[in-house]
Structure formats: structure tokens, C-alpha cells
Amino acid sequence: MTAETASAGAAPSLANVSQDATRVPGEPKSRSWLVRALVLVIAVAWTVPTAGLLISSLRPEVDVSGTGWWTIFAHPFELTQFTVANYERVLTAEGLFGAFINSLIVTIPATVIPITLAAFAAYGFAWTRFRGRSFLFAIVVGLLVVPLQMSLVPLLRLYGNYDLVGTFVGVWLAHTGFGLPLAIYLLYNYISQLPKDIFESAYIDGATPFTAFTRLVLPLSFPAIASFAIFQFLWVWNDLLVSLVFLGTNPDVAVLTARVSQLVGSRGAAWHLLTAGAFVSMVVPLIVFLALQRFFVRGLLAGSVKG
């Protein structure tokens, strides 16, 4: 491993960060095998349960309950022991495409709206002055602990009065409300740590708080925003409870998780469809994760301060 590619002095700009630039300079070569081995051990330990299920979802039910999933490695190339029937049934299920689009319709705004609100709020709490600032912030963060289940019934009643049940707007706002405290908390912790001098120089250059936010805070907070975006996306994408309660299972609006849980049946008979469904719906979050990974780069802050 050649480690000296990224010199600390030349802060990389967003555009030309390469993989190598993320490595710490001066890494001793002798240790790298140990690091790799440790990484491998943890990764394997974390993946075995999922891998077991993935393999199980490709085996006929009778085999799954008869022998351990690892027994396939005895003859891994005997393709007759596998079946794609579960995936076939999930993928050809009626209304799956619609449910997929519905999931996107729900998830993307339900990720963007809370992040936008939270970034503005975190910035407001961290870098503007107003009466009651500390008090309000403490309340918002304290709301982290309110269990979601407690909110469902009063909200449904409210929604019922305004015809919001079964609408996308209703479920966006619900996810926004439930996700905001954590979003504000996480983004505040990051945004409040930005160096003071960047704001000073920005204001001297005539920036308003609003332009300081859009031109400085947002770009500089990208790692924090990206990581929260990943989670909010995941939670909403995988959520069943909120969407069941606020959207329902009407095919016009039902999301993927609701559709899959319908496939599984009232007594949970078809758990194998559930897992096949889980693996199918996993693809989108993984893409999001990989896409946002790009923003986890070293030196973002340093570069911008100097630039």
C-alpha cells in the first residue's frame, strides 16, 4: 500500500477526491495485514446471519426445515438444490410495481423534508440568537424519547378530521415529525462545531444568514447530512407501522413493506416470501448508501476553510 498520495497540505476539493486521498498518510505497512484480518473477522461475523437467510430463501422449504443452510457448501454447484420460486412470487406479485413507486413517493420527500427542516433548525439553534433558544433546543432534543406508538392515535384522530388519512402528504409529515428530533440533534452536533471564523469572513463579505447557510453550512455539513439522509431513508423505506396506520393497504397508496406483509398472510405462513421481499427491497437502500458514501471524505472542512 502506498500511502503518501495525499499530502496534508494540499487540501482536496470535493471534485477530485480519490479513494487514495481518504487514507491516512504515513501508515505503517507492517500492520496492514492485521487491520485487514480484523476487518474481515467482523465483516464475516456480521454477515453470516444474513447470508444464512439469503441461502435459505433460495432453498425449497422442505430442505430449509430439514438441514442447516451451510450444508449446501458440501456441493455448492449442484444447482438443483436451489429455487428462485420465492423471488418469482414476490416479483410477479400483483401491484408490486405500484407499491415500489409508492415507496419512492413516500420515502424521498420523507427524507428530504425532515433534513431540510432540521438543517435550517440546527443552524438556527447553533448560529443565531433569539430568546428561548436553549429552552426550545432542549425540548426538541428531549422529544427524542417520545415513543412513536403514543402519537399514533391522537394523530389519526386529527388526520381523520382533515381527510389526511391515506394521503402521501399526511405520511410525509408524519415521518418528518417522528424523524425531526434525531435529525436536529445529529445535525446540530455537527453544525455547531463548524469553525466560527468562516462565518465571520462570510459576513464581512456581505453574506446574509440565509446565504451563509446555503453556501457554507450546507456544503460543509455534507458528511453529517449524508449520514442522516441514509438513516432517514432506511427508516422510512423499511417502515411498516407508520405506513400501515397512515396510508393503509389500498393499492393506490400502499408501500412495498405493506404489500410484502400482505403476501405473507395473516398467520405469517409465507415467511420465505417475507425474506425474499426483504432482499428485494434491500437493493434500493444499498444504492443510497453507496451513493452517499462518496461524501464521506476527509479534508472537506479543512479545504473549504482555506478555500
Binding site: L156, V245, G248, S261
Partner: peptide, 19 residues
């Protein structure tokens, strides 16, 4: 006709929510 999943919970919340 709508077959609800998580039946008791879903029905309960819909009733509680005037829906």
C-alpha cells in the same frame, strides 16, 4: 374489500382515528 395486515392493530388505529 380490503384484507388488512396486522389486523387488530390496524383496525384499532383506524377506529381510533375516526377512519
Amino acid at each position: 374489500y380490503e384484507g388488512l395486515t396486522d389486523y387488530e392493530l390496524t383496525l384499532q388505529t383506524r377506529v381510533d382515528g375516526n377512519d
